[in-house]
Design a protein around this nucleic acid. Structure first.
Lengths: 159, 159
DNA sequence: AATATTAGTTGCATTTGTCCACTATTTACC
DNA sequence: GGTAAATAGTGGACAAATGCAACTAATATT
């Protein structure tokens, strides 16, 4: 009888077809990296969910940028983007005004508090990514970055 | 006056520090690939959210596997895992029974319907990943897979 | 002028995630 | 052997995020 065999443990699980499926790895890595990032940003007004960080940094470095452009960059639809901005305005990180030349569009700007927060999270975000992926060799990190960057740019139509 | 310049468009946006941040790319790629996958699985009982697919395939190829093992693999906590399983049992994809040797643990099995669905989604999942990343050169895909696979294994403690 | 497109908003239904407390069972320790 | 600690799973509450579709307003097209 083989009844007494160890219960399946994570060591001896194979991942079926997912073993060779890029999307699986991207999805799981995302969970892990996002969770880790959230911890580091805990209490900082930009924690949780994709988008707040990008939005803040983008508005900070591109004053007057429009919601729809950010939406493309972070791959959200306009409604999700709108809500995100609303939230950040409530938190006094951004301001919004109607564009003069294009009155259906909005222009976004950071508040003093927003600028301060942007300055504060920039190093955190950079460091988090470095730390999180530090178990991958430098050279491979560079490869990974290179591939993903180009992939991303193609996806959002950046050239 | 430079007042008349084009409104910032996605072409001329730079991503600030995110440009060199792996976590940014992982997070955005995740959004894109997940969305695409959901489309392909539309109506199939396993669409939306991470976990259903992995759970189904894992239970299918490891009969008797326990929820906590799957939870580790897909990086969910036990309560989220429980709900996922509950849902799949409701949909008649899985069955659950208490382990004889370890009475606090459960053993999971696929139903006929579950096995059928597993067989059906396997090629879809594989193909989706292939297609989605097809704009990346084969060699780079292999690199990416190799790096991510090892990264993943380290994260969940598989090696 | 009529129509189509684009920007943004709003409401709604569905999910998801997280945190925490709780039970049951097994293992460790004295 | 008996108490304490760890492990597996459940259930509830709550906060967010997601996606969809309908709607207004402004601009572009023809």
């Amino acid at each position: 009888m083989l009844e007494a065999r160890k219960p399946t443990s994570i060591e001896d699980v194979d991942l079926d077809v997912l073993e060779d499926t890029l999307s699986f790895y991207v999805r799981t890595m995302n969970i892990a990296v996002s969770r880790d990032l959230d911890e580091r940003l805990d209490g900082l007004d930009v924690a949780r969910g994709t988008g707040k960080i990008t939005t803040l940094l983008l508005v900070d470095s591109h004053p007057g940028i429009r919601p729809s452009v950010i939406a493309q960059i972070i791959m959200k639809d306009r409604s999700a983007m709108g809500r995100l901005i609303e939230q950040m305005i409530d938190h006094d990180l951004l301001t919004r005004q109607t564009s003069a030349r294009e009155r259906r569009a909005h222009e976004l700007f950071v508040t003093a508090k927003g600028a301060e927060l942007a300055a504060r999270i920039r190093p955190i975000v950079t460091q988090q990514s470095k730390d999180f992926f530090s178990f991958i060799a430098q050279e491979e990190q560079a490869q990974l970055m290179d591939i993903l960057r180009r992939a991303y740019r193609k996806l959002v139509g950046m050239s």
